[in-house]
C-alpha cells in the first residue's frame, strides 16, 4: 500500500480553550494547512498552549470547534503523553492494552519487551499499578508506549528534557528510537519549550501568532518570528504596567507609607 502525498489536511479549523470562568482564549483561528508525507514540521508559537493544542488537533486527540482535520494514514497520539493509562492497572496491563490495539500481528510480546526495557522497570515493578510508580518512570512508560509502535505520522508534544539532552542512557536510547521511527516518515512537533530539539529534527516550521498562521517555511525563521512577537508582547506588557503604575501614582491611590520607604 502506498502512502498518500498528503497525510494530514486541516480545513479552516478553529479552536478555543477555556481560561477561567466564562473566559476563553484562542488557540488558532480559521487555520488551513496540509502536511505532506516525509515532512518534518515544527509548530512554533508564543504561548505553548497554542502549539500543543494544534498538535493535539492534528493528532486527533482533540476536535477543533470549527472546520475539520483529515488523516490520510495512521497518526500517533502526542508522544510523551497518554490519557488512556489507568493508575490502578499495572505498567504491563496498560502497555499490553496499547500493544493489543497497535502492535503488528505476532509482535505483541516483542513490543512489550521493548516497552519494559525503555521504561527501565524490573519485572516486579512492571507488574505493579502505575499509580504507585515514581513520576519519572511513569513519564518513561508514556514515552516508551508512544514509540513502541510504527505510525505514518509521529506527533511529538512537550517532552521531558532528559530525553533530548543526551545525558541519561535511557534518554539516549529513546532519542535513537525516535530517530528510527521518523526515518522516511512524517513528523509533527510542538516546538514551544523545546526549540533546540525541534530545530534538530524539523526541516520546516509554522509560526502561529495570536492564533493565526503567520509564516510557514524555515524553522529558524519561525523561531525568530515567535521570539520577536514574544519580545513585542513583553514590551507591550511592560508599557501597560508602566502606564498603570503612573496612573496609580498620579491618582495617589498607593499607601503614603510606601513612598516613605528608606533605601
Amino acid at each position: 500500500m502506498t502512502t498518500p502525498a498528503t497525510v494530514i489536511e486541516v480545513r479552516r479549523a478553529s479552536k478555543r480553550l477555556p481560561a477561567g470562568v466564562n473566559e476563553v482564549k484562542k488557540a488558532f483561528t480559521d487555520l488551513s494547512l496540509s502536511v505532506n508525507h516525509g515532512h518534518r514540521l515544527g509548530l512554533f508559537s508564543v504561548n505553548s498552549y497554542e502549539a500543543q493544542t494544534l498538535l493535539e488537533c492534528l493528532a486527533g486527540v482533540e476536535k477543533p470547534d470549527k472546520g475539520e482535520v483529515l488523516h490520510h494514514g495512521s497518526v500517533s497520539w502526542p508522544v510523551g503523553t497518554n490519557q488512556a493509562f489507568h493508575g490502578m492497572l499495572s505498567g504491563y496491563a496498560n502497555a499490553r492494552f496499547a500493544a493489543e490495539v497497535y502492535s503488528q500481528p505476532g509482535r505483541i510480546q516483542a513490543d512489550l519487551q521493548l516497552i519494559q526495557e525503555l521504561t527501565g522497570a524490573d519485572d516486579a515493578t512492571f507488574h505493579e499499578p502505575i499509580g504507585a510508580w515514581p513520576s519519572q518512570m511513569k513519564k518513561a512508560l508514556e514515552l516508551a508506549v508512544s514509540l513502541a509502535f510504527q505510525f505514518d505520522v509521529l506527533a511529538v508534544g512537550k517532552m521531558n528534557s532528559w530525553v533530548y539532552k543526551d545525558i541519561d542512557p535511557c534518554g539516549v536510547r529513546i532519542r535513537r528510537l525516535l530517530e528510527q521511527r521518523i526515518e522516511g516518515r512524517t513528523l509533527v512537533m510542538a516546538a514551544s519549550g523545546q526549540n533546540k530539539f525541534a530545530l534538530d529534527f524539523c526541516d520546516e516550521g509554522i509560526a502561529i501568532v495570536a492564533g493565526e498562521l503567520l509564516y510557514r517555511g524555515d524553522p529558524e525563521v519561525c523561531l525568530e518570528l515567535v521570539k520577536d512577537e514574544n519580545r513585542r508582547l513583553k514590551y507591550h506588557r511592560r508599557e501597560e504596567s508602566q502606564a498603570e503604575i503612573e496612573r496609580l501614582f498620579g491618582q495617589g491611590t498607593l499607601d503614603d507609607d510606601s513612598s516613605d520607604c528608606q533605601f
Binding site: Q83, H86, A98, Y102
Partner: peptide, 9 residues
C-alpha cells in the same frame, strides 16, 4: 472516554 485517546479504538 479515556480509551478513545487511542484513535484506532
Amino acid at each position: 472516554g479515556d480509551l478513545y485517546f487511542y484513535r484506532r479504538l
